[in-house]
């Protein structure tokens, strides 16, 4: 095991974490401001990926695809917010879970109706194809590196948006006291629609970026959705900072677990058994991490609202 390999794996973990952050940011924002659990967030991720793949194959431009993914997922988010989600803010979590579970079914089968049962093609743009050389002779895929950069930019952008803009002030006000911002005469319905569409656009962006190196297919959002929930629960629901820390933590633990656990068991077991047990444990690692965090800090690492 060389240090180059470990550094590469850490980068992989970081990149995976950044991707999760794009998903988790929207989820945690929606929960923080509106108090809503949205299981259909993964469906918006899927909408982004499909929109990007469809537009990219029609126009030949990945970048137009990314724009389309932002537009399509934000539009889908706004549409769903106005027709369904809006009615759920005053309901308990149970109703929210169920209604958004129903939305998953509707989105998945609707997408399949529109695009068919076969996965779509979406590739990395030529500009970002292939590996780059990092200091120390390390080869790393340029595209993954770009995802890390985009994630960092989004995180910074969200920070600016929330701390420096009028919209941000309203979002923060909404997080701490929902009744108050209504009293201030802010159009709360519009604010909620905007926040929801923003979260949806982030999920759609994640879907488009990841779609280029994964499979664009129906149901692609569900595994990511569960991971994103793990992330925001670890980070503290409602906290953007928590989502960032949680995402990187989950990304790194998952990646290193997959890589190190089988090797660890090989120290005192035969090869086949060790890889089998090691990878079984690795697939459980982030859930164990989450349980541990919650046992120590029942409201996550960075609880919102104190």
């Amino acid at each position: 095991m060389t240090s180059a390999l470990i550094i590469e794996q850490l980068l992989n973990g970081l990149q995976f974490g950044v991707m999760l952050f794009l998903m988790a940011a929207g989820l945690t924002l929606v929960f923080g401001v509106m108090g809503l659990i949205n299981l259909a967030h993964g469906s918006l991720y899927m909408v982004g990926a499909f929109a990007c793949a469809a537009v990219a194959s029609y126009t030949g431009s990945f970048w137009l695809g990314v724009v389309a993914s932002l537009a399509a997922s934000a539009a889908a988010g706004a549409l769903v917010e106005v027709t369904v989600i809006r009615r759920l803010y005053n309901r308990d979590h149970l109703d929210q879970v169920l209604a958004t579970f129903a939305l998953i079914l509707i989105f998945s089968e609707g997408t399949r109706y529109l695009f068919g049962s076969f996965p779509l093609f979406l590739n990395v743009p030529d500009m970002l194809a292939g590996p780059i050389s990092l200091p120390g002779g390390l080869q790393y895929p340029l595209y993954r590196f770009a995802i890390i950069v985009v994630g960092a930019l989004v995180a910074f952008g969200l920070y600016l948006l929330i701390s420096r803009t009028r919209l941000g002030i309203r979002i923060r006000a909404g997080e701490s006291d929902r009744a108050m911002i209504a009293a201030l005469g802010i159009d709360i319905r519009l604010l909620y629609t905007i926040v929801f569409a923003l979260g949806a656009a982030l999920a759609g962006l994640a879907g488009a970026l990841v779609g280029a190196i994964q499979s664009v297919q129906v149901g692609m959002g569900e595994p990511v959705l569960i991971l994103a929930f793990v992330v925001i629960v670890i980070g503290g629901i409602g906290s953007i900072k928590g989502a960032l820390v949680g995402a990187v933590l989950v990304g790194v633990v998952d990646t290193l677990g997959r890589f190190l656990l089988p090797q660890f068991f090989q120290l005192f077991m035969d090869n086949a058994q060790a890889t089998s047990i090691g990878s079984a444990l690795a697939s459980m690692s982030i859930y164990i991490l989450m349980a541990l965090v919650l046992v120590v800090k029942p409201k996550g690492l960075f609880p919102a609202n104190g």
Binding site: I37, H93, V230, V233, M284, A291
Partner: peptide, 13 residues
């Protein structure tokens, strides 16, 4: 929500 998610996490394990 934490309860919802931690029960989910145990089931996933």
């Amino acid at each position: 929500v934490y309860f919802i998610m931690i029960t989910l996490a145990f089931a996933q394990m």
